[in-house]
């Protein structure tokens, strides 16, 4: 219960912080529209030459783009900014201030920085997803909606653990910003269902940089392609990743010597 209150509190602080810079809201809308143009333009060009991509029709891919925006928005809303701040704190030694707080440091580190305007991306994602689904024409049953919800939570947990593991490396390597750049460019690949990629890349996008579980699997759930095995696999992987990242965090903490003063 304390944790929920804590998360709420940090969100409030995040919102208040960002409200100081209201112009950023319009900057964000502008950026979101540009990336939407790129995503939709890409689809338009591709479907100018074909009617399906590896079995996915154009409205179904529109739904994938919607999920891509939603998840990307969520990552940029809290996971990425918090992790970046955390790595900066390790470098500067200011992590000390977090460690002396009487709460679990992993939780504090994970919710500390919130870029509230990224909610624009989440909203755009929901709208695009809605448009895609209505064009598909099939009604989404309770079963699919449920599968989508579970897949989304599992995907979120997997992506979060992945980021935490990467960020924790900062305890040893201090400068790893470049690795994060790679993640961002890999995330672009998630705009398309991972099934189209060659085997080794599918493997990379599923297990090394887990974009498949974050974007493709939830989209599969909504378009009725999800097998129960995949869903169970996603849940199992989420559990494993959460545990591993927790253990890794503990080991990393022992290596933190503080760099301040």
């Amino acid at each position: 219960m304390t944790y929920v209150r804590l998360v709420g509190l940090y969100f409030k602080i995040g919102i208040l912080n960002e409200l100081q810079y209201r112009v950023n809201f319009f900057v964000q809308i502008f950026q979101s529209i540009l990336s939407l143009i790129v995503a939709l333009g890409g689809l338009a060009v591709v479907f100018d030459h074909t009617t399906n991509l590896n079995g996915w029709t154009s409205p179904e891919l529109l739904a994938v783009v919607g999920v891509y925006f939603m998840i990307g928005g969520l990552i940029n809303l809290v996971i990425q900014p918090s992790m970046q701040r955390f790595m900066e704190d390790v470098r500067q030694g200011t992590l000390d201030f977090t460690l002396v707080k009487p709460q679990d440091a992993q939780l504090l580190v994970s919710i500390r920085q919130i870029q509230i305007w990224k909610l624009v991306d989440v909203l755009i994602g929901i709208v695009v997803l809605g448009i895609g689904l209505t064009q598909v024409g099939k009604t989404v049953g309770i079963e699919q909606a449920l599968g989508f919800g579970i897949a989304l939570i599992a995907g979120g947990a997997i992506v979060y653990s992945f980021w935490l593991i990467l960020a924790t490396c900062a305890f040893w390597f201090v400068r790893i910003d470049n690795i994060l750049v790679i993640f961002e460019s890999m995330y672009e690949a998630g705009r398309w269902p991972v099934g189209i990629y060659p085997g080794w890349l599918q493997f990379t996008l599923t297990f090394l940089v887990p974009i498949a579980f974050a974007v493709t699997v939830p989209a599969e759930a909504l378009t009725g392609r999800l097998t129960p095995q995949t869903l169970i696999g996603a849940l199992a992987l989420a559990a494993v990743m959460l545990t591993v990242s927790r253990i890794f965090w503990r080991i990393g903490m022992r290596h933190y010597s503080g760099a301040s003063a």
């Binding site: 030459h49 074909t50 470049n178 790679i182 398309w192």
Partner: peptide, 24 residues
């Protein structure tokens, strides 16, 4: 590392287009 991040984009588009050529 920076160069490595640049390969993702051409691979993505290359895959999308070769997938379509495999179909038709």
């Amino acid at each position: 590392l920076w160069i490595l991040s640049l390969v993702a984009e051409p691979i993505v588009y290359m895959t999308v287009w070769t997938t379509i050529t495999k179909q038709q």
